[in-house]
């Protein structure tokens, strides 16, 4: 009897407050990330449309979200990336998502709201801003109005429908070593991703390659000294 009453109550709540339905009930569509291992642990096979998802910064979050944006573009939909802190390095930016570099935190949030309400973007990613409290509520409403999925890199996810975090253990980096055994280049890294929603708790492990660029323009660590600069004392001592 109690089970029947509970089911009836749940149906009534779903009917009267459809937007409050937990994501795992699969009442909303998902925006697939294009990463099979991650999509498998997301409640709807992707980031929920019309809902706010939050991802705790660092731990490979940017890499995964950039891949998700490119996957969205590959499906002929639109994605936008709001780089609130201006940390995106130009050489690694692959065209596709609309890149916005706002001048301040408030501008970043306003831009996110406008893009979400337009309904023209399948996925909007907000980084470097870390929205909190009422800001998250406002972004949730905008996402609901436009039907877009939004992922904000923030540890503040009280009102989010989906919470994600990722971490990298220091010993999970795979180094390519030089001829003397010293570390030369990071080849790949294992990222542990945790996905939480109401009634949903999943984990997965992703192995991501690490991109690198050649900065070496001098073959000797003492080259700078040859150009008229003083040698550090430590180097003089060790030499």
């Amino acid at each position: 009897m109690a089970v029947a009453a509970l089911r009836e109550l749940r149906e009534k709540l779903d009917r009267h407050f459809p937007d409050a339905t937990p994501v795992p009930r699969r009442t909303t569509d998902g925006v697939a990330t294009g990463i099979a291992a991650l999509d498998a642990v997301l409640p709807n096979g992707g980031f929920p449309k019309g809902r706010l998802s939050v991802w705790t910064p660092n731990g490979g979050a940017t890499a995964v979200l950039r891949a998700a944006c490119l996957s969205v573009i590959g499906r002929q939909e639109r994605a936008a990336w709001i780089d609130g802190q201006g940390t995106m390095a130009g050489p690694w930016w692959e065209g596709g998502p609309v890149l916005i570099r706002p001048r301040s935190r408030v501008h970043a949030l306003r831009a996110a709201e406008v893009l979400l309400r337009s309904g023209g973007f399948a996925l909007v990613v907000v980084t470097g801003v870390e929205p909190e409290g009422t800001e998250n509520v406002r972004l949730s409403r905008a996402a609901h109005d436009g039907g877009s999925a939004i992922v904000a890199l923030t540890p503040n996810g009280a009102t989010a429908a989906l919470k994600m975090s990722s971490s990298i253990a220091p010993d999970e980096y795979v180094w390519l070593r030089g001829p003397f055994g010293e570390p030369a280049t990071v080849d790949s890294v294992a990222v542990h991703v945790r996905v939480n929603a109401l009634g949903w708790n999943r984990r997965t492990r992703l192995v991501l390659p690490v991109s690198w660029h050649v900065v070496r323009s001098a073959m000797s660590p003492l080259l700078a000294d040859r150009r008229g600069m003083t040698r550090p004392a430590a180097l003089r001592m060790s030499a």
Binding site: T33, G34, I35, A36, G60, T62, A63, V64, R66, A67, A68, L70, S71, G74, A89, W92, V189, L206, L208, P209, V210, S211, H213
Partner: peptide, 8 residues
């Protein structure tokens, strides 16, 4: 499929 890559 898209391969995510750790970038700077």
């Amino acid at each position: 499929p898209t391969v995510p890559t750790l970038t700077l």
